[in-house]
Design a protein around this nucleic acid. Structure first.
Lengths: 330, 330
DNA sequence: CTGTTAGCGCTTTCAG
DNA sequence: CTGAAAGCGCTAACAG
C-alpha cells in the first residue's frame, strides 16, 4: 500500500507538499500538481483515512443504537439518519443491541474511545435502566416518550392517542377497549394517558378492565382479542397501541364472526406498510419515521460541533389516517 | 482526555508497561497492576481506539452497502450480518446507497482508504454496472443472482421459481401468468428461467404475452392485474416475482370480482411479514434473510483474515410455503 | 511555493 | 519485569 511518502519520493517532492496538494491545491504550483497527480495515479495512492482521523482525532462517525434493526419503523428512522449524516460527511455505525444493555455499553464505549463522535439511541427511555446521557458522549434519543432527559426527537404520543380515541368516541363508541404494550413501556404509558384524557373529556369513566396488556407483537394482539370476546359486555371499539396488534386483533375478531367496522371498530398506531393492504384497511397514526431520523441526526451533529441546539426536545407532527377499520357505533 | 502517557505518569511507570498491563496483564507485576488500575480509574482513562486502529492499520469494520435500508428484507440480512460481525469483534458501517453508483463508489473507497476492512454488497449484480470485485477490496455479494462473480451468498432463484410454478401446474393450471420485475433485473432473469423450466417440463409452451413487467412495487402489481383482466383468455394462475406485487394483484383481482383461490391462484416470492396476514394468506417462497447475512459476514471475515473460502458461492436453502392463495383449477 | 520537522496515542522491539 | 525509543501515515507550523 503506497503511502504519502512513496508519492513524495516518486514526485521528487516532500510529503508536506503532497499533503497540501491534496487539501489546498491552489497553494501548489501548477507544474508540481501535475507531477503529483501522475505519481498518485502511478502508485495508485489512496490516503489512509485511519491515519487522517487519528491525527484529526475526530472520527466523523455516528453510532446508531437500535433495539432491532429488522423492525421497519427503526429501519426508516435509520434511513433518515443516514441521509443527513452522509450529507454532512459522517458515516454511521450500526449498533443492533438486540435489547441487551451489555451491548449498549459497548456502543457507548465506542464514542468514549473516540471511535465515534456521538450517538443516536432508538430505544425508548426507561428511568431505571438509563445508560444515557453520559458526560462527554453527545447523544440524542429518537422516538422516545415524554420525560426523556437530554436531547430527543419524537412525536407527541399522548396527543396522538387522544386523537384516535376521540375519533372513536366521535363515532358514537362508549366502551372502548385497549390493547396496550407492556405496562412499563414508556410508549404504553404515554399512549394510555392519551386514552384516559380523551375519555375524561367525553365524560366516560376509565375502566381498567377494558385494558388488556399485549407486548406489541402479533400473537399478543390475537390473544387479547380472544380475551375481549369472552367479556360479558364487550367493547365496541378498540384502540391498539400498534398496528401489528391491531391487525392481529382484527383477524381474531373476524374469525369469531364479527364484521369490521360494522360490528366492531379497530384502530392502530404506527402506519406500517401492511396497514394499507389489510382488509379492512386500518385506521392509524403515522409517525414521520424518516423525519425523526433526519432531525435526530441534525441535532446530534450540531451537538458534536459544539453548538447548543435551541431546544432539548423536538416534537414532530404525526398524521392521523382514517381508513376502513373504524365506523359508527350501531 | 487522558492518554496512556498521563496514566504512566500518574502510576509512576512507563507507557510501555501500561500498554502491556492492558493487553497482557500476566506480564506485569501484581503490585504495578494495582497501581495502574488506580491511575486509570482516577483519570478515567479510555484507550483511544482511533490510535489503536491506526497503529494496527486494521479497522475491524465491515461496510454493508444496501440499496434501501427501509426494505425489510435488507434489514433482516443486515441483522444477520451485525450479529456475526459483532461476535467476531467487527463493527458494521451502514451504507445506504439509495441506488446511486456514486455513493457506492464512496463506500468502496472506505475500504480502499483503510476505513473498513471489507464490504458486503446487497445490490444484485448487473454486468454493465459492476463496481466490484476490485483487487484489494475484500467483498461478498449477498442475495444476488446466478452468475455473480467472486464471492456471493444467495438462494437458488431458478429452483425456487420452478418449484412455485410446478406447484401451480400440479393444481391443474395450464395458463400461468407472470408479474415480473424489471426485465433486466438479475432476479427477474433467474426467476423467469425457473418459470420456463417448469413449463417446459410439463410440456406447456412458453407464451411471452403472459408475462407482464412490473417493478417489484405495489402499484405495478395492481396495474399488471388490470392488464390481465382485459385479456380475452386470461390466465388462471399467477406467479408474481415478489410478495408486494402479489398482494397488489390479489387486491386488483378481488376488486374485479374474482375469488382467490376459487377463480384465480396467486403466488408470490419473499415471504414478507404481511404475507401471513393478508386475506387470503399468500403462497410464497421464504428466503432465509438473516442466514444469508450471517453467511455473508462469515465469508467476508474469513476473506479479510486471508483465508480462502472453500467455495466462491454459497447457496442457501429456500422454503416454499403453501398458504391459501393457491388452489386447484376448476 | 516548498522542505523540514514535530507530534497525534499507541504498541513493540530491544536492552537492561 | 520494566524503560527507552522508534515508528505507523498524516498534517501543520515554521523557516527558507
Amino acid at each position: 500500500m503506497a503511502t504519502i511518502k512513496d508519492v513524495a519520493r516518486e514526485a521528487g517532492l516532500s510529503t508536506g507538499t503532497i499533503s497540501k496538494a491534496l487539501h489546498d491545491p491552489q497553494k501548489v504550483s501548477r507544474k508540481n500538481q501535475v507531477k503529483i497527480e501522475a505519481a498518485i495515479k502511478k502508485l495508485n495512492y489512496k490516503p489512509n483515512m485511519l491515519a487522517q482521523k487519528f491525527r484529526a482525532s475526530t472520527s466523523k462517525t455516528l453510532v446508531v443504537m437500535v433495539p432491532d434493526i429488522a423492525n421497519l419503523f427503526f429501519a426508516k428512522v435509520i434511513s433518515g439518519i443516514e441521509a443527513v449524516a452522509q450529507a454532512a460527511g459522517f458515516s454511521v455505525l450500526l449498533g443492533d443491541t438486540k435489547d441487551s444493555l451489555e451491548r449498549e455499553r459497548e456502543f457507548i464505549r465506542m464514542v468514549e474511545t473516540r471511535l465515534a463522535d456521538g450517538l443516536i439511541n432508538l430505544r425508548p427511555y426507561y428511568k431505571d435502566e438509563a445508560l444515557l446521557p453520559i458526560k462527554g458522549v453527545p447523544s440524542v434519543t429518537a422516538s422516545s416518550s415524554s420525560g426523556t432527559p437530554s436531547y430527543s426527537v419524537r412525536i407527541d404520543n399522548v396527543a396522538a392517542s387522544e386523537k384516535i380515541v376521540k375519533h372513536l368516541i366521535g363515532l358514537g363508541h362508549k366502551r372502548i377497549g385497549v390493547i396496550s404494550g407492556l405496562h412499563h413501556n414508556p410508549h404504553t404509558i404515554d399512549r394510555l394517558e392519551g386514552y384516559k384524557k380523551a375519555l375524561s373529556q367525553a365524560g366516560i369513566d376509565y375502566d381498567e378492565d377494558l385494558v388488556v396488556e399485549g407486548d406489541f407483537n402479533y400473537w399478543s394482539g390475537l390473544s387479547a382479542a380472544e380475551q375481549f370476546c369472552q367479556m360479558p359486555n364487550m367493547p365496541t371499539a378498540f384502540f391498539c397501541m400498534n398496528d401489528e396488534m391491531a391487525i392481529a386483533a382484527m383477524k381474531g375478531f373476524i374469525d369469531k364472526g364479527f364484521c369490521i367496522p360494522q360490528d366492531l371498530s379497530v384502530a392502530g398506531f404506527d402506519d406500517m406498510d401492511v396497514s394499507r393492504y389489510v382488509v379492512p384497511t386500518l385506521t392509524t397514526v403515522a409517525q414521520p419515521a424518516e423525519k425523526i431520523g433526519e432531525k435526530a441526526a441534525e441535532m446530534l451533529i450540531s451537538l458534536i460541533q459544539g453548538d447548543t441546539p435551541k431546544s432539548e426536545e423536538v416534537i414532530l407532527p404525526f398524521e392521523f389516517i382514517i381508513r376502513e377499520s373504524t365506523g359508527p357505533f350501531q
